[in-house]
């Protein structure tokens, strides 16, 4: 029972952080929310006994793609549609 409740909490967190990443107009905050999504997703993979996928997701999703998004944002604009 406690296993299922942890999974429900994780899945709700994934959907909520993905929604906030979509709705935020500050793109840096969106990138951080995407990193949170990847981190919760890798925890979910680990709980479902797929540690290989969990390691790859944590390294690429939470580490590298966030860095590449931040680099791309510093090269272009921080705010969506040019407004603050």
């Amino acid at each position: 029972m406690i296993f299922e409740s942890i999974q429900v909490i994780l899945l709700v967190g994934i959907v909520a952080s993905a929604f906030f990443a979509l709705k935020n107009t500050d793109l840096v905050a969106s990138a951080i929310f995407l990193a949170a999504t990847s981190l919760l997703l890798s925890t979910e993979f680990y709980l479902l006994q797929a540690p290989d996928v969990a390691i790859a997701e944590a390294a690429i999703g939470a580490g590298l793609s966030t860095a590449i998004f931040i680099v791309a944002i510093t090269k272009t604009e921080r705010w969506e549609n040019g407004k603050k």
Partner: peptide
């Protein structure tokens, strides 16, 4: 995953 972890080091150094 190992190569991606070492490449995280490159991104950290760059930033």
């Amino acid at each position: 995953p190992g190569g991606a972890i070492i490449a995280t080091m490159t991104a950290l150094l760059l930033i």
